[in-house]
């Protein structure tokens, strides 16, 4: 009971907020994995690039700043696909993953050079900061960004679910994720499907950049790096073979991190990572195909 007692509505709000943001990142990573079988470690640097764009356009009107953020992230996502993912399409998973490490370091190194032009490390993205203010709901202070994050995540997930279920490109994407060879045999255009996944994944990274800079307006080259690692862990724990289990995994790891943090005694929170990662190991040992991967053929359909 002591664990539950230490969790108040405020914490719950934060847990939903972070879970929602991580769920969006999980979709972005899971969608590209579905069609390319590639774990994109450099996903965090798309978000970082978006955050820098927000920082450098702080003087612009908010809408223009956000549009610029999306434009930069999507363009970078497409460039990554063209220059890195496509040439690697037939390589082994280890090679693809390690190449995205290199891309991740490359983008961080470039960001560092751009950032240091003004002589100081880090930039402040404050255009959307007002969302960080708290509003009072039933006597409890909850930050506005929590509602925005949950709203954006739900909206984006519902929209994506509809596109995947109802449109031709959605059908083709699901088919490609399930059995790429047969999909191509039927005339599904591989490049179009991959392009779709890459653009949507970029759009989601743009949205995450906006939401994360509200919580933490201080942007530096390692921005979103740690979040990406945590989400990658969550995605595999949830079950990377299907988009929805991956998304749930992303949500769960964000949600649980906040709750465990609140439940641990104050002087023990330093061991939070150990507790969370020990849980990760236990879950992987019990359900190696994914926590949420129920059913007969866990790996049949991957989106």
């Amino acid at each position: 009971m002591s664990v539950l007692a230490s969790i108040d509505l405020n914490t719950l709000g934060d847990a939903f907020g972070l879970g929602a943001i991580y769920a969006l990142m999980a979709v972005g990573i899971g969608l590209v994995f579905g069609v390319l079988r590639l774990v994109n470690f450099a996903y965090g640097q798309l978000i970082m690039a978006g955050a820098y764009t927000l920082a450098y356009t702080t003087s612009w009107p908010v809408t223009a700043s956000i549009v610029a953020c999306f434009a930069v992230v999507v363009a970078l996502s497409l460039a990554m696909d063209r220059l890195v993912f496509r040439p690697l399409r037939s390589s082994s998973p280890a090679v693809m993953l390690v190449t995205t490490f290199a891309v991740s370091f490359l983008l961080q190194a470039v960001a560092l050079i751009i950032d240091l032009r003004d002589g100081t490390l880090g930039e402040v993205a404050s255009a959307v900061a007002p969302l960080n203010q708290a509003i009072t709901v039933g006597g409890v202070d909850i930050r506005k960004v929590t509602f925005v994050a949950v709203g954006v995540a739900l909206g984006a997930l519902v929209a994506l679910a509809l596109v995947l279920a109802r449109t031709t490109i959605g059908l083709h994407t699901r088919a490609a994720a399930s059995d790429f060879r047969t999909a191509r045999l039927l005339g599904v255009r591989a490049n179009r499907v991959i392009g779709f996944a890459v653009v949507v994944s970029g759009l989601l990274a743009g949205a995450v950049a906006v939401l994360l800079t509200v919580q933490n307006p201080f942007v530096q080259p390692a921005f979103a790096l740690e979040d990406t690692i945590v989400v990658l862990v969550g995605v595999v724990v949830g079950g990377i073979d299907r988009l929805w289990t991956a998304t749930l995994g992303g949500f769960a790891i964000g949600f649980v991190s906040v709750l465990v943090n609140a439940a641990l005694p104050t002087d023990q929170t330093i061991f939070l990572p150990s507790v969370v990662y020990a849980l990760v190991i236990v879950v992987l040992l019990l359900r190696p195909a994914g926590l949420f991967a129920w059913g007969r053929r866990a790996a049949m359909e991957r989106v």
């Binding site: 724990v237 990662y277 190696p288």
Partner: peptide
């Protein structure tokens, strides 16, 4: 799964 579990070991060791 092996990749992520061994990564978890790295995180715990570091922590």
């Amino acid at each position: 799964a092996a990749g992520i579990a061994t990564f978890a070991v790295l995180e715990i060791t570091h922590n």
